[in-house]
Nucleic acid binder design. Structure first.
Length: 110
DNA sequence: CTAGTGACTGTTT
DNA sequence: AAAACAGCCACTA
């Protein structure tokens, strides 16, 4: 059962992120089957309306950084708050410790 | 049709 | 460490 369009694949991939875990744009793109389409991930999530179905707050930039999308950074704070509520910790630099919280896809042997 | 832009990433200077 | 370059896709003017 393959997704029909890229957007749906992206949403699916994001929804697969377990609670208390995070993933990067590149990782989502990879999981969605588009290893070099990380930009489309961000674009798709930007179009997405937060209806509570897609945990957009679990998607971070490379290295566990939160991407800037609002001038005052209010959305960033919300995202950080949501993540902390799930038990995700940030370091002094404002980045997530990916070594601890990055979502690791279940290794499935071929 | 072309050109510009964007929740990005990885490699090279 | 920071900046520049290249790569990919969708939407808008």
């Amino acid at each position: 059962m393959a997704a029909r369009n890229p957007e749906e694949r992206i949403y699916r991939a994001v929804m697969r992120i377990p609670r208390g875990r995070v993933a990067t744009y590149g990782q989502i793109a990879r999981v969605a089957g588009m290893p070099r389409h990380h930009r489309q991930v961000g674009r798709a999530l930007g179009r997405l309306i937060d209806d509570g179905l897609v945990p957009w707050h679990r998607v971070l930039g490379a290295g566990g950084t939160i991407s800037t999308r609002s001038a005052d950074g209010s959305v960033e704070q919300l995202q950080r708050k949501l993540l902390e509520r799930e038990g995700v910790m940030f370091d002094a630099r404002g980045r997530v410790a990916l070594a601890r919280f990055q979502w690791k896809r279940a290794a499935k042997g071929p």
